[in-house]
C-alpha cells in the first residue's frame, strides 16, 4: 500500500468524525434532560413508526426476497424489470418517493380518490402515511439483504428437506427461515435505521403535524430554525439511537461468527 494513501484516508475519517464531534461539543448539556423530555413525542413517534415499518418490511419483504432469489428461471426482461423496481427506492431521492405516494394515495390520487369516496379513508398527513413513506424507502434494504442470504444458502437444503418428506411450507419454516435468520436480522436493522432517518418522503407525503407525523428528523430540522438547542438535542437523540443499533448489531454479528 502506498504511504500517500494515508493522508486522504485520514482526511476521509476526519470528515466523518468531526461533524459528530462538533455536535457533541455544542450540546447544551445542562438543559439536555429538559429538552429530551420535550422531544419525547417525536422520539416516541419515530420509534413506533420505525418499528411498524420494520414489521411491514419483514412481513412483505421476506416473501419478495425469497421469490426474487428463485427468479433465475424467469424470462430475462421480467427479471430485470422486477429487480429494477425493487432497487429504485434505494437511489431515488426520497422527495420523489413522497410525491409519488401523494399521486397514488392523495385525495386526487389513483387509489386515494376511490379510497376516500368508498370508505371515507384519507391517507396523507396521518401517522399511517409516515409508515408508508418509511416503508417505501426502507423495503429495498431488507429485500436485498434477505435475497443475498437466501442465494448464499442455495437450494440444496431445500432438496434435502423435500426428500425427507417436508412440504414446501414446512421446509420454508424449518429450514429456509432459520438458515437466513442472520440476513433477516441485519436487513431488519438496516431497515429500521433507514426508517428512523427518513425525512424527504415523510415530509412530502405526511407533513409535519406535531405528535402525528412530526418524527425526530423533521422535528430536528424545524427546531434548527426556531430553537437551535432543541435541534441539537434531537440530533443527539438520533445519533444515540443509531449508536445503540450499531453496537447491538456488532454483538449479534460477533456472536454469529464465533
Amino acid at each position: 500500500m502506498p504511504r500517500g494513501l494515508w493522508i486522504p484516508a485520514a482526511l476521509a475519517l476526519a470528515f466523518l468524525v468531526l461533524p459528530l464531534v462538533a455536535l457533541i461539543a455544542r450540546a447544551p448539556w445542562p438543559s439536555v434532560p429538559e429538552l429530551v423530555a420535550g422531544s419525547l413525542p417525536a422520539l416516541g413517534l419515530s420509534v413506533t413508526t420505525g418499528l411498524t415499518t420494520t414489521a411491514l418490511c419483514l412481513l412483505f419483504g421476506i416473501p419478495l426476497a425469497v421469490v426474487l432469489a428463485g427468479s433465475d428461471g424467469w424470462p430475462a426482461p421480467l427479471r430485470r424489470v422486477v429487480r429494477a423496481v425493487v432497487t429504485v427506492p434505494l437511489v431515488l431521492p426520497p422527495v420523489v418517493g413522497g410525491i409519488a405516494l401523494l399521486l397514488l394515495l392523495g385525495r386526487q390520487g389513483l387509489l386515494g380518490r376511490p379510497l376516500e369516496q368508498l370508505f371515507g379513508v384519507t391517507v396523507p398527513f396521518s401517522t399511517p402515511a409516515v409508515v408508508l413513506a418509511q416503508t417505501f424507502v426502507s423495503m429495498p434494504f431488507l429485500v436485498l439483504a434477505v435475497e443475498g442470504a437466501v442465494r448464499a444458502t442455495g437450494r440444496r437444503f431445500d432438496v434435502v428437506a423435500a426428500a425427507l418428506g417436508a412440504s414446501r411450507w414446512y421446509a420454508f419454516r424449518r429450514v429456509t427461515l432459520p438458515l437466513v435468520a442472520p440476513g433477516i436480522a441485519s436487513g431488519a436493522v438496516l431497515c429500521f435505521t433507514r426508517a428512523l432517518g427518513e425525512f424527504g418522503a415523510t415530509i412530502t407525503f405526511a407533513g409535519s403535524l406535531p405528535g402525528v407525523t412530526r418524527t425526530l428528523p423533521i422535528a430536528a430540522y424545524l427546531g434548527l430554525q426556531s430553537d437551535p438547542d432543541s435541534a441539537i438535542v434531537l440530533a443527539l437523540l438520533l445519533l444515540a439511537v443509531s449508536l445503540i443499533v450499531i453496537v447491538s448489531l456488532r454483538d449479534r454479528w460477533l456472536r454469529g461468527s464465533a
Binding site: R156, F157, V159, V160, A161, A163, L164, G165, A166, S167, Y170, A171, R174, V175, P178, L179, A181
Partner: peptide, 26 residues
Amino acid sequence: IGWVFQDSLLFPHLTVLENVAFGLRA
C-alpha cells in the same frame, strides 16, 4: 425416499439429533 449425498448436507442450524428426527417431524 431417503437420499444421501457425498456431502452429508446436515442442516447446520439443527443438532445431529434434530437432523435425524427431521424426516419424522416433517
